[in-house]
Design a protein around this nucleic acid. Structure first.
Length: 670
RNA sequence: GCCCCGUUAGCUCAGCUGGUAGAGCAGCUGUCUUGUAAACAGCAGGUCGCAGGUUCGAAUCCUGUACGGGGCUCCA
């Protein structure tokens, strides 16, 4: 999830054209060059190039170079593991964002206690400067050499299919030919270790340097499938230098510091009481204010933009979700049914059929019923129904995480019913509305993702999909934002555009989605009367802007690291008298602010001034107003802002104007 | 759901190889309160997540369970 702010790029080195038959060592003397690109393919520096071939250098700091570094580090890890535990069977070991992992089948799982010994073994291998030597093998040779590695044998068997397989597998066997990399002792020429691998690799292990560390252990299913055995995975990180490793670690620390789960406790915003159940949150008063402000602003924006607000219940008879299809497709994601109203006689025979009621996992079916409650005319379209709908989903216990993934969540959900020729204009204005609203909450760095048809799983006509997808693509392109393709990522009922936002420390979150639905209008037999009097089927657009309010709350909390803009802050102003004597004077100032709707409090506790400043600074209150004799004499107060800066002797009128101005403008500036 | 790890006072944590718990902050009480990130003193607070088991004896070992964390899978 954490994107490095900027991958360190070494000075650009120019591509060269080989004059004689040579290799990368002959072409590039710069020590930051660790591999090269020949005809678009990444190659080891030892690869022979013919005269006239154009060769691009790959430096260790480039994205390709980092991946090679990390992949080489993964090999060293695997060698270290097998040196300590020769029984460990190898899975796969690819580079990933910020690091690498390697999977092993071992009798007893690793723990972080193993890291000291493993790191030491890795260090020894790195210092030996073992060379990575590439060797092409036939399938039979590979099978013979790797006879004791069942998972590698399986990969060899998969080789044909691996070209379009998962990334991790293609790292092992993705090339045109099968290759093994030998780790060779530079002094003795002895082969210490080998692995089936596509490469390329660093020329030798010494170049891994000391910018790496083992990070954590985890279990992972072989080839990503729950049906396969679980392997033990070790994650590591690797960087060109120790300094970059240190920077990476401080980025992790920064992210940990703004973790919403931690801030939620520190700022007393929300909790997950065990008594309620896993994934079910309660918002405390301070979190409640922030949430109410988020919702109020959203509601205001909805009303300004032609939405109508609706409400629907949390439970419903199962029939509704049979009509919508959710019970067929989504039942395992729903809380189980409550079976109600059944009656039996003394013999236990059913005298009255019961009903299954379900907690709703989605709001759309209810909105469809509102649409269908009476005849609809084309004149009413687009019809935009919006609701803060609380839904319940029985997420697998292992997937729950703070407020970002829960079992009870409130969607700012809306369903828009349009005629086919309104789709484009509506989607375009939705996108505009979405981006503008998100900017209002202080997020302004976006890109879009277009999820298109999964050919194995969809309903509806191909040409309708085609056309709708094209419409979404046009709208996305016209927005001018970066557009990323997500082929096959669409739900079965229609394509979608999603808005991805980058937060203050560069992480990206999927927020809003605008999703077309060709399926539910069918299933609910939704119709409107067209201008010629015929009955037509509307197209439905699902649109969630904040996604889930709980999750959006968490994203904002992390984005601002708890230091919300004034309009969202639970306590906006706190008054701190220099001594008790000035409390009544400050109280008047506080009262004036409260009269303007500002959440202002006077701190009359018997702590000293310095302590109060510390407390409210830690609570991230935007404005502290301090007053002593000097201020009282002038009818003024002293401002202390959250960042520690201050302005003394500000007249009270000015204070009120400045604070109310910052709040009503929803400014991020104080 | 699966694997590993964790759960001790409101919070952050200590408690070695089994001999029935400790600190700082927060809280309460008192004495204080003059200029920008921690006044001083005292008090109170825990059946060590819960339920079983082993043991003369369990916070400590074992089993189960709830909740949390890191991953895998999932996210229609």
């Amino acid at each position: 999830m954490s994107e490095p702010v900027a991958e360190q790029s070494a000075p650009t080195l120019e591509a060269v054209v080989a004059e004689t038959t040579t290799d990368g060592f002959g072409l590039f003397t710069d020590r930051s060059v660790v591999a090269m690109r020949v005809d678009g393919e990444l190659r080891d520096l030892a690869h022979r190039v013919e005269p006239g071939t154009r060769v691009e250098p790959v430096t260790i700091g480039s994205p390709d170079g980092l991946a090679i570094l990390r992949h080489s580090a993964a090999h060293v890890l695997a060698q270290a593991v097998q040196s300590i535990n020769p029984e460990a069977k190898l899975g796969i070991g690819p580079p990933v964002t910020d690091g690498f992992y390697y999977d092993f089948d071992v009798a007893s799982p690793f723990t972080t206690d193993d890291f000291a010994a493993l790191s030491k073994a890795m260090e020894r291998i790195v210092r030996q400067g073992q060379r990575f030597i590439r060797r092409v093998v036939t399938e039979d040779e590979a099978r013979a050499e790797l006879a004791s590695e069942p998972y590698k044998l399986e990969l060899i068997g998969l080789k044909g299919a691996a070209a379009d397989g998962a990334d991790g597998e293609s790292v092992e066997v993705g090339g045109a030919e099968l290759t093994i990399y030998d780790n060779v002792d530079p002094k003795t020429g002895e082969v210490h270790w080998k692995d089936l691998c596509r490469g390329p690799h660093l020329p030798n292990t010494r170049m891994i340097g000391n910018g790496w560390a083992l990070m954590r252990v985890a279990a992972a299913y072989w080839r990503g499938s729950e049906k396969n055995p679980q392997l033990q995975r070790i994650y590591g990180t690797a960087w060109p230098s120790k300094d970059e490793l240190r920077e990476y670690r401080s980025r992790l620390e920064e992210a940990a510091k703004r973790d919403h789960r931690k801030l939620g406790v520190e700022l007393d915003l929300f909790s997950f009481p065990d008594e309620i159940g896993s994934g079910l949150s309660v918002f405390h008063p301070k979190g409640g204010i922030i949430r109410a402000e988020i919702e109020n602003y959203m509601r205001q924006r909805l009303l300004e933009n032609g939405y109508e607000l609706v409400y629907s219940p949390h439970i419903t008879k199962g029939q509704l979700f049979e009509t919508s299809g959710h019970l067929q497709w989504y039942e395992e994601g729903m809380f189980p049914a409550m079976h109600l109203d059944e009656e039996r006689d003394a013999e236990g025979n059913i005298t009255k059929q019961g009903q299954n009621y379900y907690l709703k996992p989605m709001n759309c079916p209810f909105h469809n019923l509102i649409f269908r409650a009476r005849g609809r005319s084309y004149r009413e379209l687009p019809l935009r129904l919006a609701e803060f709908g609380t839904v319940y989903r029985y997420e697998k216990s292992g997937t729950l995480s703070g407020l970002t993934r829960v079992r009870g969540l409130t969607q700012d959900d809306a369903h828009i019913y349009v005629t086919p020729d309104q789709v484009k204009a509506e989607v375009a204005s939705q996108l505009e509305f979405v981006l503008e609203t998100l900017r209002g909450y202080g997020l302004d760095d976006f890109y879009l993702e277009l999820s298109t048809k999964n050919p194995d799983k969809y309903v509806g006509e191909d040409d309708v999909w085609e056309q709708a997808t094209e419409t979404l693509r046009e709208v996305a392109t016209e927005s001018g934002l970066e557009l990323v393709a997500d082929p096959g990522g669409a739900a079965f009922y229609g394509p979608k555009i999603s808005v991805q936002a980058r937060d203050a420390i560069g992480r990206t979150w999927q927020l809003s989605t605008v999703q077309l639905d060709f399926n539910q209008p069918e299933r609910f037999e939704l119709e409107y009367a067209a201008s010629d009097g015929s009955r037509q089927r509307p197209i439905m657009i699902h649109r969630a802007l904040l996604g889930s309010i709980e999750r959006f709350f968490a994203i904002l909390l992390e984005h601002y690291a708890g230091a919300f803009p004034a309009w969202l802050s639970p306590v906006q102003v706190v008054g701190i008298p220099v001594a008790e004597e000035y409390a009544p004077y400050l109280q008047e100032v506080i009262d004036r602010l409260r009269a303007q709707g500002v959440r202002a409090e006077l701190d009359r506790s018997d702590d000293r001034m310095q302590k109060k400043i510390r407390n409210h600074t830690m609570q991230k209150v935007p404005y502290q107003l301090i007053a002593g004799e000097e201020d009282r004499a002038k009818g003024a107060v002293s401002f202390r802002f959250r960042d520690g800066t201050q302005v003394n002797g500000v007249p009270v009128d000015e204070v009120v104007a400045r604070i109310t101005g910052a709040i009503s403008s929803r400014s991020a500036e104080l």
